[in-house]
Design a protein around this nucleic acid. Sequence first.
DNA 1: TTGACAGGTATACGGCGTACACCTAGGCTA
DNA 2: TAGCCTAGGTGTACGCCGTATACCTGTCAA
Lengths: 214, 214
Amino acid sequence: MPLSKERVLGAAVALADAQGVEGLSMRKLAQELGVVPMALYKHVANKDELLDAMVDVVVGEIDPPAGGTDWKTAMRRRVLSARGALLRHPWTSRVMESRASPTPAVLAYMDSMIGMFRAGGFSIDLTHHAMHAMGSRLLGFSQELFDETADVGPGMDAETLRELAGAFPHITELVVAITHDQASVVGVGCDDQFEFEFALDLMLDGLERLRDRA
Amino acid sequence: MPLSKERVLGAAVALADAQGVEGLSMRKLAQELGVVPMALYKHVANKDELLDAMVDVVVGEIDPPAGGTDWKTAMRRRVLSARGALLRHPWTSRVMESRASPTPAVLAYMDSMIGMFRAGGFSIDLTHHAMHAMGSRLLGFSQELFDETADVGPGMDAETLRELAGAFPHITELVVAITHDQASVVGVGCDDQFEFEFALDLMLDGLERLRDRA
DNA sequence: TTGACAGGTATACGGCGTACACCTAGGCTA
DNA sequence: TAGCCTAGGTGTACGCCGTATACCTGTCAA
């Protein structure tokens, strides 16, 4: 089977899924395809263009807007669909952020999101603010700067734990509370999906209130 | 003047401020300091540690919590102070996101933020949700996935503009509205500071309402 | 005086993206 | 059918990167 842009993209996405985007190099990708590195350049202009195209693959997995419902549930559904795509390809958010300007596919997604607000009766100005306020959540991710439970685990002795508790009392209190909530569940950690939806609804409810006040 | 961790860090921050974090290499940094690359390794273990230390420099610029006010204005002030630091060193957010785990300084900042919620009468659970919901905004940035006015400017002919309007009608409408709002100002673009505070207040107000309901 | 050590240096390795020249097979035109 | 064009894979090489390793030199304590 000869090379093609589709084959290259597919292998690139798979490789990034498997190894993370830091592990994706033109050379490894070529090897994966049984080909010499420079062969890739007959199908993509350079690595940056490859990354852009990979983002578009993921954005293409987001469901189209649902019809026949109010703006809020339609938007909610679409955002959660985007989140699904981003969870399947966790490298995407990082790549998207590092890119200088958005790809047409991302622009089209944003455009249709704006349209959903407008159809929901939002003024242009409020729509504008809403887009900013939603920020990355529109694409189904909110960068989590730290996973509070990742660093606390079985691999830590009581001494270190006590030190941590002294240095960061509030974090400790919080982690303890979370962990107790679900003591029976294997693998401590909070319910990311719940947290995401919590913040999403907080945002959507607040925006709705602002719209109705005007 | 001999090398020192402080001199290395200072030069690294300055270089990243000037060239962006992509332009920061151990070799360029060494050259900036008039020294051979390997000399740096007597003061930092490796580039990752250097990046972590650079983040801590910026986090150190964030004002301590303001006393003598209610939780909301105290938190608002602190977040805006963080935003100031991040705006002075725009590379910081990207570096922070790319790091595997947060530095102690970042943890300490988060810890004190949690403390501010708790002092404001938030339950542990609501505090937890609040921290997730605030996400990166806690550190004064919300990743802007696209700057809607960056791509539309004097360097674009009427033909391209019409094409864009056809492909992305809602974005176009929005950009036009924004640009008209401030026709007299040089350099189109929305007021980022306003947008940030809008979203921040939306969040804080929503959280307060939840707290009072409980 | 000696010896340890802190701190700057020289060299080298493997990995990266990619420019450039080359080859080769398939298909189109004359 | 002869000639050539071109799409697509190859080989080599360049300059950049982070950093391991060995080395040198000046300072200071014993």
